[in-house]
C-alpha cells in the first residue's frame, strides 16, 4: 500500500472540506473495496478521509411511505433491521446475501453504490424499488444514477448521505452468487411498486439496469411463465473467467423467474 494522510472527520461538512483541500483525496466508508484496492496498489490517494465516525450518516428510519437508510449504514444493519424486515423484507434479504458476515459488518450502502461494481447487489434494490440517492447537494433518481461500469452520476467530491426506498407492495431478489466471492454473477430484483412492476438486473451487464421487456410482460400478472417468451441478448453482457455473456443472459431469465415465483 502506498502512504497517505489519514483523516477522521466527525461531520459531513468537515469531510467535504477535507476532500476539497486534499490533493487527491478519497472517502473511505467500510473499506471493504477501498482497502483491498489500496493493498494491490491500484489506487494512490494522497489523503484517505474515513467516514466511520460520522454519526449522522448511520441509521435506518421510516419517513412517510419510505424507509431511509443512512449512507454509512452497514449491510449487516440493513439485513437485520426489524424496520426493514417489516416494511421491505426483500431489501433485508438482499443485504443478507452480500458477501459474508464480516464484509456485511463493515461494508456500507453508500460505499457500495458509489463504487458501482457491476456484480454488486444493491443496484438491484435501488432500481427495482425506485429509490432516491440523497447526497450532500441533491437527490438523484435511481434511473439516473448508474452510468456504467464503476461509473455513477456522482461528482468527484459528492458524498452519499442516505438512500430513500419507497415501500413497495412486495419485492424479491434472487441471485446466482459467484461461489468464491458471493458477488452476483447475475441477480434480479422484482418489485410491485406504486408505479407498477419494476424488474432490475445486476451482475450481468456493465452496471445495474431495468429490464423493461420483463416489466411489460409481468403487467398482466406475476406469472414466471410470462418471462419464458422473452429473449435476452448477450451482446452487451459481461464475459469473464466466471461466466460467458451467453451464460449470464440465461441467468438473467432464470433469476428473474425465480424472483417472480417468490412473489406470486
Amino acid at each position: 500500500m502506498y502512504a497517505f494522510n489519514y483523516h477522521r472527520p466527525s461531520t459531513v461538512q468537515e469531510a467535504l472540506l477535507l476532500l476539497k483541500s486534499a490533493e487527491d483525496g478519497k472517502l473511505m466508508a467500510g473499506g471493504q473495496t477501498l482497502i483491498p484496492t489500496l493493498k494491490q496498489r491500484l489506487a494512490q490517494p494522497s489523503d484517505v478521509i474515513d467516514l466511520g465516525r460520522i454519526k449522522e450518516l448511520v441509521g435506518i428510519t421510516e419517513d412517510g411511505d419510505a424507509v431511509v437508510v443512512g449512507g454509512m449504514t452497514t449491510h449487516g444493519a440493513v439485513a437485520t433491521s426489524p424496520l426493514v424486515e417489516a416494511r421491505i423484507p426483500g431489501l433485508a434479504a438482499l443485504a443478507h446475501l452480500i458477501g459474508d458476515p464480516q464484509v456485511r459488518h463493515r461494508g456500507t450502502i453508500g460505499g457500495s453504490l458509489a463504487n458501482n461494481d457491476p456484480s454488486s447487489d444493491y443496484p438491484g434494490a435501488v432500481l427495482a424499488l425506485d429509490a432516491t440517492i440523497v447526497t450532500d447537494r441533491r437527490k438523484i433518481a435511481a434511473d439516473d444514477f448508474f452510468e456504467g461500469m464503476f461509473d455513477t452520476a456522482l461528482e468527484e467530491d459528492e458524498l452519499i448521505t442516505s438512500v430513500r426506498f419507497p415501500v413497495p407492495a412486495k419485492s424479491a431478489y434472487r441471485k446466482f452468487p459467484n461461489p468464491a466471492s458471493r458477488y452476483a454473477m447475475a441477480g434480479a430484483m422484482v418489485a410491485v411498486t406504486v408505479g407498477g412492476v419494476r424488474v432490475a438486473i445486476t451482475g450481468a451487464g456493465p452496471c445495474g439496469y431495468r429490464w423493461t421487456e420483463a416489466e411489460q410482460a409481468l403487467e398482466g400478472g406475476l406469472d414466471p411463465a410470462a418471462i419464458d417468451g422473452l429473449t435476452v441478448a448477450a451482446d452487451d453482457l459481461n464475459s469473464d473467467i466466471h461466466a460467458s455473456a451467453a451464460y449470464r443472459a440465461n441467468l438473467v431469465k432464470v433469476m428473474t423467474k425465480r424472483a417472480v415465483e417468490a412473489l406470486a
Partner: peptide, 13 residues
C-alpha cells in the same frame, strides 16, 4: 463485539 477482517481495516480505524 463484532467479527471483522483485521486485514481489511487500518490500524488507525
Amino acid at each position: 463485539g463484532t467479527s471483522v477482517k483485521a486485514c481489511t481495516m487500518l490500524a488507525v480505524q
